[in-house]
Simulated assay, not measured.
Amino acid sequence: MLKKIQAYKIKGLANLALMAAIAVPAVTVSFFTAPIAIAQSTRKAVVFNPPSNIRSVPNGQIICSVQSKTTINVYGQNNGWYKTDYCGQGYIHQSQVSLQQTSQAQYSSSFCDVINISQGQLALRFTPNGESRAGLNNGNTVRPLQQQGVWSYVQVVQGSSSPVNGLKGWVNSNYLTCY
């Protein structure tokens, strides 16, 4: 009978050890896969003279390049480098960006650039979702005048050709980044 009890104790300890071995890695993995929180406040900055490189660490390996005038988020500053979430998470040098005033970033936009057109052009329309009067390319600049849902009534500042400059019309604001 004593041998039987000792066998159960050994078997029980083996099961306990097995459960601990299985449970510990699961707990450990969850600690290491949690998202990294950025404790610094977010500011908006405009990459004003692209192309500009986003690096893994200050002066480190390039992880991506900003190819057009774009508004990005920046966090803090250390020795001339801002942390950004533009390409996941990296760093951009202060010489490549112009910080926006807090009120400017939250309440008004003086200019917008056309972005994320993968083929064709962004239609400048007579009315929201109406007939097209001209086309805009990535990097073209417009000034927003009015907003109606997803549609922005804009004036073209720098268009795809000089006859487009100065025209007014409606564009899908999902293809604009404003600063």
Rank of each mutant, 00 (worst) to 15 (best):
P35S: 07
I63P: 01
T42H: 05
S68H: 12
S52Y: 04
N59Y: 05
P51M: 09
P51N: 06
R55W: 01
P35R: 10
S65K: 15
I38N: 05
S68W: 02
V57S: 14
A45R: 11
R55C: 13
Q40G: 01
A37G: 00
Q67H: 09
F48L: 07
N59D: 15
P58I: 05
R55I: 06
K44S: 14
S52G: 14
I38F: 00
N59M: 08
A34N: 06
I62E: 15
P35K: 11
N53S: 15
I62N: 13
V46P: 06
S68I: 10
I62P: 03
Q61F: 03
I62K: 15
Q61K: 05
S65H: 14
V46E: 06
S65F: 10
V66N: 13
P51Q: 03
N53M: 13
V57I: 12
R43Q: 09
Q61T: 14
S56Q: 04
A37C: 00
V66H: 10
V47E: 00
I36Q: 10
N59R: 05
N53L: 11
N53P: 09
S56R: 01
V47I: 14
R43S: 14
C64T: 07
N59S: 14
V66M: 12
S56P: 02
A39T: 05
S68M: 06
S41E: 10
I38H: 01
R55M: 15
S41H: 03
P35W: 05
G60T: 09
R43M: 01
K44V: 08
S41Y: 02
N53W: 08
V47Q: 01
Q61M: 04
R55G: 10
K44F: 10
V47F: 03
K44R: 11
V47Y: 03
I36R: 09
A45E: 11
R55Q: 15
Q40M: 01
P50H: 08
T42Q: 06
I54H: 15
S56T: 02
A45F: 02
I36A: 09
